[in-house]
Design a protein around this nucleic acid. Sequence first.
DNA 1: TCAAATCCACTGACCGGTTGGTTGCTAGCC
DNA 2: GGCTAGCAACCAACCGGTCAGTGGATTTGA
Lengths: 187, 187
Amino acid sequence: MARDAEQTKRRLLDAATAEFSGYGIAGARVDRIAAAAGCNKAMIYAYFGSKEQLFDAVFDERTKAFFAAVPFDAGDLAGYTGRAFDYYEDHPETLRLSTWYRLERPADEHLRAITEANDVRLGEIGRAQQAGEVPGHYSPVQLVVLIQALSAAWHTTNPELGPRLPADRAERRLTLVDAVQGLLARK
Amino acid sequence: MARDAEQTKRRLLDAATAEFSGYGIAGARVDRIAAAAGCNKAMIYAYFGSKEQLFDAVFDERTKAFFAAVPFDAGDLAGYTGRAFDYYEDHPETLRLSTWYRLERPADEHLRAITEANDVRLGEIGRAQQAGEVPGHYSPVQLVVLIQALSAAWHTTNPELGPRLPADRAERRLTLVDAVQGLLARK
DNA sequence: TCAAATCCACTGACCGGTTGGTTGCTAGCC
DNA sequence: GGCTAGCAACCAACCGGTCAGTGGATTTGA
């Protein structure tokens, strides 16, 4: 096996993503991560410091990847909802990871990245409303929360419905885009 | 301390509800539950069998309590959304518990109670649509998913927004009720 | 006096983290 | 080119502590 620190970090990060997404912080096992990455447990501590910091690294990377792949667009909220849905569909671990984060981390310590992103969104929606591009029926905060909830609707309530869910992904997508359009049509 | 098996079970169940809701299945500590209930750890195994079964008991009870307190009403979906919101607001542990459940339990084994409740809901919405009481723009499954997602919107995305959230509970409630009315107004 | 309820003290497995040492790449010297 | 010193990358084995679960004694109420 070639000795390559960067590649080892990469393998650890990938294995950790799968492990944390599957079992959460408390449920994740450091030994399993090391085994899945094909290297020794000690490397985790050499490269990331601790289990918690490894989770931080994973979460940070996934968050950045999401923001990069699904740019927010206040002028096209329905389209954004659809693209967020697509991302959740293709990368279910992202949503699981942030759900674990919300549950397992104390309420007050949240990643600055997310807070900042939300502030930007609120500002953009506010400006778009002033410019008349977005109807003012809902406030920016209301819109952010509604859209966030809707874009993940199929994934957060997935398991309970089971086989009753529409098999057609495009249909599920359309439901959300249509619903957001409905909200924006409100007067 | 009076010897009362029922009351001891009750105290254990209450303590377990708080513990599981706070830390999840993997993160919950049996010793903490016993200490909080003011009795010995062994009682958990005498009355509930195992940590997992204790969680089942807690989850089962909370689920039943929710269904009893917030009856589904296909003829008044907006009102149902508001009442569900109220319940989540007053009993945040319920929502946390079911989120833990979704994350920590394998996808295929889900409580029959929830599956059945969902089937009932789908049937009721279908009938209400046939009777013309509910518009047919969305299918029953779509409506269930959208309404479920919306009723918990403030609570699932709560932490990220933090201080930007409307302090007024009535305002948050109205947002959801209005949004559902918007969906139902779709043609 | 008997059965149910309760608890103490213990166990074996496991888990996050560390230690002390080994392996393999490469820069620099001859 | 061949040799080697030095260092980064890597690992097996271990450690202290924690955890879910239990056997057996003890207490209580009927």
